[in-house]
Design a binder for these strands. Structure first.
Lengths: 165, 165
DNA sequence: CTTGGAAAGTCAACAAGGCTGACATAAAAT
DNA sequence: ATTTTATGTCAGCCTTGTTGACTTTCCAAG
């Protein structure tokens, strides 16, 4: 390792103390980040798992079950339980694939889109306030660090959705 | 609302699209952020709840159960279950308070400190790599946004621990 | 000294949402 | 014709959160 005043100064942000602060900031921020949608979901009898399914179906309408599975990183049994209740309640529609009839393509119904909007409005409101408070440069840094924190292999799910859709 | 080229350009980071990217970045990054300790915990028969207890007892040795409760934001029944197994396994020591004998002061044993180090080494390694990749300015922005995202009321738990000790 | 209330622990019951394993069905691919 | 893939489903288990009820310990105010 190189040392001297210059490098030891520029690497101050890599001390264990700095890293610990980052770790705790992640814990507390994520807790509050999920709190607003959680409150809404509770009143509807849903949980965070339903929110995630709704979010990504909204983002990629017509996505298959398998695709959703690999984005969420859970088992099909886990996802199926959530998906079944959303379909029964008329928030999600499952259409048999035209080309490949084994596949089910997932869409939000009107009611599903309404709930999605309610949930994401709440989450965006918090994010917007934080972004406005922090400023554009901080936001760039925020995103940069989060992306660097992702597993390189799993990052593709994020990158695939990053450019919009 | 003010408009014109200047303000619409400087507020680009507040569009719904930008906010959505931030929301998804939080989801994916947090998932991977917790993955390393989760793997270690699995081999020891513990879960994320045990990690959180261990982390904050390490940070504030001698903390009371009530204090830990308010930091973690769970019920005493939930925490008690976790704490009991850690005490039984000899990772945590619970000492009756000297002044107030109702209070229990919590400490990590040698074995507890060893596991703590193993867990935090893994988590710091990922954080360190991300920080190094992103650079000091990005790290500042990262922390600024996370802090702005916390509930003002609950932020005190983070702030209290922020300065170390 | 008695009593009220705070701190802590415990028991029971429940729910969400992960997991594994086993099995069924339909359709595509070989 | 057989194998593989995509999906769904049943049963059961675990962790970790919840509420409610109850007890013990002990400080502090009356």
């Amino acid at each position: 390792m190189a040392d001297g005043p210059q490098s030891s100064e520029s690497l101050l942000f890599l001390t264990d103390e700095q890293l610990r602060k980052g770790i705790e900031a992640m814990f507390f921020a994520y807790r509050d980040f999920t709190a607003d949608p959680d409150r809404i979901l509770l009143t509807k009898g849903y949980g965070r798992a339903h929110h995630r399914a709704i979010h990504f179906i909204h983002r990629a309408p017509g996505t298959t079950v398998n695709n959703l599975l690999s984005i969420l990183g859970v088992t099909k049994q886990s996802l199926n339980r959530v998906l079944r209740s959303l379909i029964e309640d008329g928030l999600v529609e499952s259409r048999v694939g035209r080309r490949d009839k084994r596949e089910r393509h997932l869409f939000l119904t009107e009611a599903g889109e309404t709930l999605e909007r309610e949930l994401s409005d709440a989450q965006r409101a918090r994010m917007r306030t934080a972004y406005r408070e922090a400023g554009p440069e901080a936001v760039t840094g925020f995103r940069t660090v989060l992306e660097a924190m992702m597993d390189p292999e799993l990052r593709r799910h994020y990158m695939a959705m990053k450019e919009g859709g």
